[in-house]
């Protein structure tokens, strides 16, 4: 059952790499932010799949249940999700202003507009 043992991690890594690829290659600023979102969300999947205990349930104490999953990574990921949203919000605010001042949100057009000054 080795594949089942690490399947979660490998898919999380695959998603991480897709997000990373989107951020590097695509010039559109909004697409970069969505790629960044993909990249950070897949790190959360890595953390949460660490916390799962086979046969355990959610870490909310209920009568008659013994085995629980590990609650600590959940807390870390709650904070990390908030950080992800805050970064996306600031990024989108910057995109709005860039569109306001440059008239485009494509990276190479922006570079053209700056170099032509």
């Amino acid at each position: 059952m080795n594949i089942g043992a690490h399947y979660n991690y490998w898919v999380a890594i695959f998603l991480m790499m897709t997000g990373f690829y989107v951020v590097i290659t695509h010039g559109n600023l909004i697409k970069k932010l969505i790629g960044l979102n993909l990249f950070t969300t897949s790190v959360f999947i890595l953390y949460i799949s660490l916390a799962k205990v086979k046969g355990g349930t959610a870490p909310i104490i209920a009568p008659g249940i013994e085995v629980y999953s590990n609650p600590l990574p959940h807390v870390l990921i709650l904070t990390a999700i908030v950080v992800g949203v805050a970064t996306t919000a600031v990024g989108l605010a910057l995109v709005l202003l860039i569109y306001d001042r440059y008239g485009t949100i494509e990276e190479d057009e922006i570079r053209l507009k700056d170099d032509s000054l």
Partner: peptide, 24 residues
């Protein structure tokens, strides 16, 4: 508020693929 069109093609995909595969 901005526009819904992505115009530019992906730049330097090969280099990016290399970096991404290395990190992966």
């Amino acid at each position: 508020a901005t526009d819904t069109q992505q115009r530019s093609a992906p730049q330097r995909p090969l280099f990016a693929l290399l970096v991404v595969c290395a990190t992966g």
